[in-house]
Nucleic acid binder design. Structure first.
Lengths: 123, 123
DNA sequence: GTATCTGCAAATCATTTGCATTCTG
DNA sequence: CAGAATGCAAATGATTTGCAGATAC
Protein backbone atom coordinates (compact mmCIF):
# COMPACT_ATOMS: atom_id res chain seq x y z
CA UNK A 1 0.00 0.00 0.00
CA UNK A 2 1.25 3.39 -0.90
CA UNK A 3 1.44 6.01 1.82
CA UNK A 4 1.65 9.74 1.86
CA UNK A 5 4.77 11.64 2.52
CA UNK A 6 5.53 15.33 2.41
CA UNK A 7 8.69 14.66 0.46
CA UNK A 8 6.90 12.74 -2.23
CA UNK A 9 4.29 15.43 -2.63
CA UNK A 10 6.99 18.03 -2.83
CA UNK A 11 8.85 16.17 -5.59
CA UNK A 12 5.69 15.61 -7.58
CA UNK A 13 4.56 19.18 -7.21
CA UNK A 14 7.95 20.48 -8.13
CA UNK A 15 8.01 18.56 -11.39
CA UNK A 16 4.41 19.35 -12.23
CA UNK A 17 4.75 23.05 -11.57
CA UNK A 18 7.50 23.61 -14.05
CA UNK A 19 7.96 23.45 -17.81
CA UNK A 20 11.71 23.49 -17.71
CA UNK A 21 12.39 19.74 -18.02
CA UNK A 22 14.61 19.62 -14.95
CA UNK A 23 17.21 16.99 -14.24
CA UNK A 24 16.97 15.02 -11.03
CA UNK A 25 19.38 17.31 -9.30
CA UNK A 26 17.51 20.39 -10.51
CA UNK A 27 14.39 18.96 -8.90
CA UNK A 28 16.47 18.30 -5.80
CA UNK A 29 17.40 21.97 -5.67
CA UNK A 30 13.80 23.06 -6.09
CA UNK A 31 12.57 20.81 -3.33
CA UNK A 32 15.35 21.70 -0.96
CA UNK A 33 13.90 25.17 -0.58
CA UNK A 34 11.11 23.58 1.40
CA UNK A 35 12.87 20.47 2.71
CA UNK A 36 16.50 21.35 3.35
CA UNK A 37 17.21 17.81 4.54
CA UNK A 38 15.68 15.89 1.70
CA UNK A 39 17.99 13.34 0.19
CA UNK A 40 18.88 13.17 -3.47
CA UNK A 41 18.06 9.48 -3.29
CA UNK A 42 14.52 10.32 -2.30
CA UNK A 43 14.20 12.62 -5.26
CA UNK A 44 15.43 9.88 -7.57
CA UNK A 45 13.09 7.37 -6.00
CA UNK A 46 10.06 9.55 -6.45
CA UNK A 47 10.88 10.63 -9.96
CA UNK A 48 11.33 7.00 -11.02
CA UNK A 49 8.06 6.23 -9.37
CA UNK A 50 6.31 8.86 -11.46
CA UNK A 51 7.99 7.46 -14.50
CA UNK A 52 6.91 3.91 -13.67
CA UNK A 53 3.33 5.04 -13.18
CA UNK A 54 3.42 6.84 -16.50
CA UNK A 55 3.07 10.22 -14.87
CA UNK A 56 6.37 11.50 -16.13
CA UNK A 57 8.58 11.18 -19.15
CA UNK A 58 12.32 10.74 -18.96
CA UNK A 59 14.29 12.28 -21.78
CA UNK A 60 17.89 11.66 -22.51
CA UNK A 61 19.55 14.53 -24.26
CA UNK A 62 21.99 14.15 -27.13
CA UNK A 63 24.69 14.99 -24.61
CA UNK A 64 23.55 12.23 -22.30
CA UNK A 65 21.89 14.24 -19.55
CA UNK A 66 18.58 12.91 -18.28
CA UNK A 67 15.63 15.25 -17.87
CA UNK A 68 12.13 14.76 -16.50
CA UNK A 69 8.87 16.08 -17.86
CA UNK A 70 5.45 15.76 -16.22
CA UNK A 71 3.82 16.47 -19.57
CA UNK A 72 3.16 13.00 -20.88
CA UNK A 73 1.24 14.07 -23.97
CA UNK A 74 3.00 13.20 -27.23
CA UNK A 75 5.34 15.98 -28.12
CA UNK A 76 8.96 16.52 -28.99
CA UNK A 77 11.83 18.49 -27.64
CA UNK A 78 14.47 20.96 -28.60
CA UNK A 79 17.82 20.79 -26.93
CA UNK A 80 20.32 23.63 -26.80
CA UNK A 81 23.92 22.50 -27.08
CA UNK A 82 25.06 25.62 -25.36
CA UNK A 83 22.87 26.14 -22.31
CA UNK A 84 21.57 22.60 -22.14
CA UNK A 85 17.99 23.84 -21.98
CA UNK A 86 15.09 21.78 -23.28
CA UNK A 87 11.98 23.27 -24.89
CA UNK A 88 8.76 21.72 -26.14
CA UNK A 89 7.51 21.51 -29.72
CA UNK A 90 4.08 20.20 -30.48
CA UNK A 91 3.51 20.02 -34.24
CA UNK A 92 3.46 16.73 -36.04
CA UNK A 93 6.63 15.28 -37.42
CA UNK A 94 6.58 16.71 -40.94
CA UNK A 95 6.43 20.22 -39.60
CA UNK A 96 8.83 19.79 -36.75
CA UNK A 97 11.99 21.15 -38.21
CA UNK A 98 10.23 24.26 -39.32
CA UNK A 99 8.63 24.66 -35.92
CA UNK A 100 12.05 24.38 -34.30
CA UNK A 101 13.38 27.12 -36.50
CA UNK A 102 10.36 29.25 -35.81
CA UNK A 103 11.28 29.02 -32.15
CA UNK A 104 14.56 30.67 -32.95
CA UNK A 105 16.66 27.55 -32.82
CA UNK A 106 19.51 27.19 -35.19
CA UNK A 107 19.01 23.51 -35.82
CA UNK A 108 22.28 21.71 -36.36
CA UNK A 109 21.25 18.16 -35.74
CA UNK A 110 18.51 15.93 -34.55
CA UNK A 111 18.14 12.50 -33.17
CA UNK A 112 15.02 10.50 -33.67
CA UNK A 113 14.74 7.18 -31.96
CA UNK A 114 11.69 5.08 -32.28
CA UNK A 115 11.41 2.43 -29.67
CA UNK A 116 9.34 -0.64 -29.28
CA UNK A 117 10.00 -4.30 -29.73
CA UNK A 118 11.77 -5.67 -32.75
CA UNK A 119 10.53 -8.50 -34.89
CA UNK A 120 12.80 -11.07 -33.26
CA UNK A 121 11.88 -10.18 -29.74
CA UNK A 122 8.19 -10.34 -30.47
CA UNK A 123 8.43 -14.05 -31.13
CA UNK B 1 50.89 15.32 -34.91
CA UNK B 2 48.86 12.19 -35.12
CA UNK B 3 50.66 8.87 -35.21
CA UNK B 4 49.69 5.41 -36.18
CA UNK B 5 48.91 2.72 -33.72
CA UNK B 6 47.69 -0.80 -34.15
CA UNK B 7 45.10 -0.34 -31.46
CA UNK B 8 43.61 2.74 -33.09
CA UNK B 9 43.35 1.02 -36.44
CA UNK B 10 41.70 -1.95 -34.79
CA UNK B 11 39.08 0.21 -33.08
CA UNK B 12 38.31 2.11 -36.25
CA UNK B 13 38.08 -1.02 -38.33
CA UNK B 14 35.91 -2.71 -35.77
CA UNK B 15 33.38 0.09 -35.80
CA UNK B 16 33.46 0.48 -39.56
CA UNK B 17 32.98 -3.20 -40.20
CA UNK B 18 29.67 -3.58 -38.42
CA UNK B 19 26.22 -2.15 -38.75
CA UNK B 20 25.22 -3.22 -35.26
CA UNK B 21 25.69 0.13 -33.49
CA UNK B 22 27.90 -1.27 -30.75
CA UNK B 23 28.45 0.29 -27.36
CA UNK B 24 31.99 1.11 -26.31
CA UNK B 25 32.30 -2.12 -24.41
CA UNK B 26 30.96 -4.09 -27.36
CA UNK B 27 33.72 -2.57 -29.47
CA UNK B 28 36.12 -3.46 -26.69
CA UNK B 29 35.06 -7.08 -26.94
CA UNK B 30 35.45 -7.08 -30.70
CA UNK B 31 38.93 -5.63 -30.59
CA UNK B 32 40.07 -7.86 -27.77
CA UNK B 33 39.97 -10.82 -30.12
CA UNK B 34 43.00 -9.33 -31.81
CA UNK B 35 44.47 -7.34 -28.92
CA UNK B 36 43.80 -9.19 -25.70
CA UNK B 37 45.58 -6.50 -23.71
CA UNK B 38 43.90 -3.45 -25.13
CA UNK B 39 42.46 -1.18 -22.49
CA UNK B 40 38.87 -0.07 -22.38
CA UNK B 41 40.21 3.46 -21.96
CA UNK B 42 41.94 3.20 -25.31
CA UNK B 43 38.72 2.12 -26.94
CA UNK B 44 36.92 5.09 -25.42
CA UNK B 45 39.70 7.43 -26.47
CA UNK B 46 39.60 6.26 -30.05
CA UNK B 47 35.84 6.22 -30.35
CA UNK B 48 35.66 9.76 -29.02
CA UNK B 49 38.33 10.73 -31.48
CA UNK B 50 36.24 9.39 -34.36
CA UNK B 51 33.31 11.27 -32.99
CA UNK B 52 35.28 14.50 -32.72
CA UNK B 53 36.49 14.15 -36.28
CA UNK B 54 32.95 13.57 -37.45
CA UNK B 55 33.70 10.02 -38.49
CA UNK B 56 31.26 8.47 -36.09
CA UNK B 57 27.92 9.24 -34.56
CA UNK B 58 27.09 8.70 -30.91
CA UNK B 59 23.54 7.74 -30.15
CA UNK B 60 21.96 7.66 -26.76
CA UNK B 61 19.02 5.32 -26.60
CA UNK B 62 15.85 5.98 -24.67
CA UNK B 63 17.23 3.74 -21.95
CA UNK B 64 20.38 5.79 -21.67
CA UNK B 65 22.89 3.45 -23.26
CA UNK B 66 25.36 5.02 -25.65
CA UNK B 67 26.02 3.44 -29.03
CA UNK B 68 28.41 4.26 -31.85
CA UNK B 69 27.79 4.26 -35.56
CA UNK B 70 30.35 4.83 -38.30
CA UNK B 71 27.57 5.65 -40.73
CA UNK B 72 27.43 9.41 -40.53
CA UNK B 73 24.88 9.89 -43.28
CA UNK B 74 21.58 11.35 -42.07
CA UNK B 75 19.37 8.54 -40.94
CA UNK B 76 17.40 7.49 -37.93
CA UNK B 77 17.30 4.55 -35.59
CA UNK B 78 15.02 1.98 -34.13
CA UNK B 79 15.64 0.80 -30.64
CA UNK B 80 14.31 -2.43 -29.19
CA UNK B 81 13.29 -2.18 -25.55
CA UNK B 82 13.78 -5.86 -25.09
CA UNK B 83 17.09 -6.79 -26.67
CA UNK B 84 18.53 -3.29 -26.72
CA UNK B 85 19.39 -3.62 -30.40
CA UNK B 86 19.55 -0.64 -32.70
CA UNK B 87 18.58 -0.76 -36.39
CA UNK B 88 18.75 1.84 -39.14
CA UNK B 89 15.88 3.52 -40.97
CA UNK B 90 16.52 5.78 -43.90
CA UNK B 91 13.29 7.34 -45.15
CA UNK B 92 12.49 10.96 -44.51
CA UNK B 93 10.67 11.95 -41.38
CA UNK B 94 7.06 11.82 -42.60
CA UNK B 95 7.46 8.20 -43.61
CA UNK B 96 9.48 7.07 -40.66
CA UNK B 97 6.87 5.54 -38.45
CA UNK B 98 5.57 3.50 -41.31
CA UNK B 99 9.08 2.40 -42.22
CA UNK B 100 9.65 1.31 -38.66
CA UNK B 101 6.55 -0.81 -38.73
CA UNK B 102 7.52 -2.26 -42.08
CA UNK B 103 10.69 -3.47 -40.41
CA UNK B 104 8.57 -5.51 -38.06
CA UNK B 105 8.87 -3.21 -35.08
CA UNK B 106 5.95 -2.78 -32.85
CA UNK B 107 6.45 0.91 -32.25
CA UNK B 108 5.42 1.92 -28.77
CA UNK B 109 7.18 5.21 -28.45
CA UNK B 110 9.65 7.52 -30.02
CA UNK B 111 11.87 10.29 -28.98
CA UNK B 112 12.83 13.05 -31.30
CA UNK B 113 15.33 15.58 -30.12
CA UNK B 114 16.45 18.38 -32.33
CA UNK B 115 19.58 20.05 -31.19
CA UNK B 116 21.26 23.23 -32.02
CA UNK B 117 21.55 26.57 -30.33
CA UNK B 118 18.58 28.36 -28.88
CA UNK B 119 17.66 31.95 -29.56
CA UNK B 120 19.11 33.20 -26.30
CA UNK B 121 22.42 31.50 -26.70
CA UNK B 122 22.88 32.79 -30.20
CA UNK B 123 23.12 36.35 -28.95
C1' DG C 1 2.06 -1.90 15.48
C1' DT C 2 3.75 -2.71 11.22
C1' DA C 3 4.78 -1.71 6.63
C1' DT C 4 6.26 2.20 3.99
C1' DC C 5 9.49 6.10 3.38
C1' DT C 6 13.27 8.63 4.31
C1' DG C 7 18.26 10.02 4.96
C1' DC C 8 22.70 8.58 4.83
C1' DA C 9 26.51 6.25 3.29
C1' DA C 10 28.36 2.82 0.60
C1' DA C 11 28.03 0.39 -3.83
C1' DT C 12 27.53 0.46 -8.91
C1' DC C 13 28.26 1.64 -13.61
C1' DA C 14 29.92 4.06 -17.42
C1' DT C 15 33.30 7.11 -18.67
C1' DT C 16 37.48 9.98 -17.97
C1' DT C 17 41.97 11.17 -16.40
C1' DG C 18 46.89 11.03 -14.50
C1' DC C 19 50.96 9.01 -15.07
C1' DA C 20 54.69 5.93 -16.04
C1' DT C 21 55.82 3.20 -19.96
C1' DT C 22 55.96 1.82 -24.65
C1' DC C 23 55.72 2.96 -29.39
C1' DT C 24 56.18 5.70 -33.83
C1' DG C 25 58.23 8.87 -37.06
C1' DC D 1 65.12 11.34 -29.44
C1' DA D 2 60.62 13.80 -28.72
C1' DG D 3 56.11 13.53 -28.87
C1' DA D 4 52.07 10.40 -29.07
C1' DA D 5 49.41 6.62 -27.70
C1' DT D 6 48.80 2.91 -24.54
C1' DG D 7 47.63 0.32 -20.16
C1' DC D 8 46.56 0.52 -15.68
C1' DA D 9 44.58 2.24 -11.77
C1' DA D 10 42.47 5.76 -9.49
C1' DA D 11 39.07 9.61 -10.05
C1' DT D 12 34.65 11.13 -11.48
C1' DG D 13 29.69 11.80 -11.86
C1' DA D 14 25.22 10.02 -12.04
C1' DT D 15 22.24 6.84 -10.20
C1' DT D 16 21.04 2.88 -7.08
C1' DT D 17 20.89 0.22 -3.02
C1' DG D 18 21.16 -1.51 1.95
C1' DC D 19 19.87 -0.46 6.21
C1' DA D 20 18.45 1.66 10.58
C1' DG D 21 15.42 4.89 12.10
C1' DA D 22 11.30 8.05 11.36
C1' DT D 23 6.52 8.22 9.85
C1' DA D 24 1.83 7.22 8.15
C1' DC D 25 -2.38 4.63 8.62
Amino acid sequence: MKRHSRQRDAVRNALCSVKSHPTASAVYDMVRAEFPNISLATVYRNLSEMYDEGNAVMLTTVSGSVHFDADTSPHSHLYCNKCGGVTDVYPDLPDLRKAAEDKGYEVTNYSLMYSGVCENCRK
